[in-house]
Design a protein around this nucleic acid. Structure first.
Lengths: 334, 334
DNA sequence: CTGTTAGCGCTTTCAT
DNA sequence: ATGAAAGCGCTAACAG
């Protein structure tokens, strides 16, 4: 009972009509006799015909698929954003072609090229991507939305988070609860989110605490980096009474290291993160953070892309900036 | 500077050769003069040529893509398994076409059909899929691996978890720490993982505690279900001194409800889960569970599929069963 | 309403 | 080594 994958030709022959009629019948076009339509449907059914979407895409120049390029650094961030994208894609009946980046810029180029002819648009989140990069490597004006980047123009758009404002809000909260010496754990070198959060932190600390050179410790968004930084912080300056990590994952690592060292959080040191990944509610103490609504970010990015695909030559959509929201939990409240 | 997506023809013309030669040069075939090769490469470069992979797939009858069909019920489980699959796919240079199921069996059929002609093989995890279902709906013998199902035959394979053994191991642990009346919170009706865990639980409780009718509470793998069940458990029988939830997420909901009710865990009641999702280490008390190595499950499933694709008519691979491993944490140890 | 023809972009015999 | 031509499976004019 090994059936060799019927094509539309087989269906046409079986139904005794031309492939054109078969195609029309199968796709519910108006100009077909009910009789022939039925014969075609019956034939398709009998042969277990399933249309070859690859071929269809080639003729229609439309794939009903969008490509998603993400860095893999992002534990829960990753799954949340995919969930958001998928939610929107599903609503429009589109499929998702996924490319996780485990590497550098050249890999990003590879991934983007590998999507040519397989997608109608691209959703890219990569620290190494900017406008020039896209123009150079994007297969002929494929509509693209960049997440957490800043770029826009015909066929391009971007969505970003107000990282600087978020960082300022967090510093204000910390200062408001009486913290006087706040340290920051930074994200990876060159990551724009990380850089902006640091800038916002510096500005706010200067404004609110008059601290022109607050202590800054290097991190890379990983839990291990958070632990390492916590140790360094303890050794560096006993006056530090708050730590602001550039993302939640590092804050959690920090929390762990402080607990191991027997330090009271938030009594002696307050700890805060950024993103509000789902685990933040589960760690003890629960983590104060800036909520980003990650899934929504994905959904909105997708919708922006859908707009771009629908009107490739329209005016570039305004660059959207999402404002994160302070979520106060146990790690900063005495 | 709007370049209209060069095709291989444009490249050929630019280089002054035939498309055949262009193709050969571009793909690094042996039979091309270094001179022509260089001219072609230069032309491609000049035109920013990026091959149209959709078209290539059509001729080569190979897409270098595998389709992944998952239910969306699985929070962290989802992201872990994707991570595992992606790791393996990346190693072999394959892409992933993703379909998240938000619905029922008919949607699964849709998703599977929508992959015809776009993928070389399928990785399916769906409670509604069995051998008959696949044979009926699978586009002509597409190699398929079913996760957490039991099915095998030419072109099909499956991977599963020893749920029954895992449940028995957990009961043994609970009984070993002195628990005498263990309640179970089940997973969704008809879910094979859930059913097997329940069966293992029943058998082990009968064997080890002589309890022929242990209390069982209905759940659906959600955090809310865990909370509801916890309340029901407290009301039902004050002698219950342990709860075994069919997955971690429910166990976590249970933990939360018990904490709200002021119940001492593990003092008065022990709580255990199944899966070892990443958050299990972060909740307080930390959660005792059966570790499934979710990402590995994805990786191995992918590798099995790759084998199937390489040798579609070979002997069906043995059905692989993964043995979960007991991880004892605070929620069950006095 | 239906069939014939062309063609999407690419690879691959088959000649030359 | 190179080019002409066929064809992957499908849809879309264009005639009839």
């Amino acid at each position: 009972m090994k059936k060799a994958t019927a094509t539309i030709r087989d269906v046409a022959r079986e139904a005794g009509v031309s492939v054109a009629s078969a195609s029309r019948a199968l796709n519910g076009h108006a100009n077909v006799t009910p009789a022939t339509r039925d014969r075609v449907i019956a034939a398709a059914d009998k042969l277990s015909y399933v249309p070859h979407l690859g071929a269809r895409s080639l003729t229609m120049a439309r794939t009903n698929t969008i490509g998603v390029v993400l860095p893999d650094l992002f534990g829960e961030f990753f799954s949340e954003i995919i969930r958001g994208i998928d939610r929107a894609a599903h609503a429009r009946g589109l499929q998702l072609l996924l490319a996780n980046m485990h590497g550098d810029a050249s890999e990003t180029v590879q991934a983007i090229r590998a999507m040519r002819g397989r997608v109608d648009g691209l959703l890219v989140m990569s620290p190494t991507v900017d406008a020039a990069f896209l123009d150079r490597h994007l297969p002929g004006g494929l509509p693209t939305v960049v997440l957490n980047g800043h770029i826009s123009g015909v066929g391009h758009a971007s969505l970003s988070i107000d990282n600087e404002g978020g960082a300022r809000a967090m510093v204000a909260h910390l200062a408001g609860t009486g913290r006087r010496r706040i340290a920051m754990i930074t994200g990876p070198e060159g990551n724009s989110d990380a850089d902006e959060r640091l800038a916002g932190f510096r500005a706010a600390v200067a404004d609110l605490l008059g601290d022109a050179a607050p202590p800054v410790f290097a991190g890379d968004f990983s839990e291990a980096a958070g632990e390492t930084a916590a140790t360094a912080i303890l050794a560096a300056d006993p006056l530090i009474d708050a730590v602001f990590a550039a993302n939640d994952v590092m804050a959690i690592g920090c929390l762990r290291a402080l607990a191991d060292a027997g330090i009271d959080v938030p009594g002696r040191i307050a700890v805060a993160g950024f993103d509000d990944v789902p685990v933040s509610r589960f760690v003890r103490p629960t983590l104060t953070t800036m909520r980003v609504h990650i899934a929504d970010l994905g959904t909105r990015a997708f919708d922006t892309l859908a707009g771009l695909i629908a009107a490739p030559d329209g005016d570039p959509p305004a660059e959207v900036t999402l404002t994160p929201e302070l979520v106060v939990r146990q790690s900063t409240t005495r």
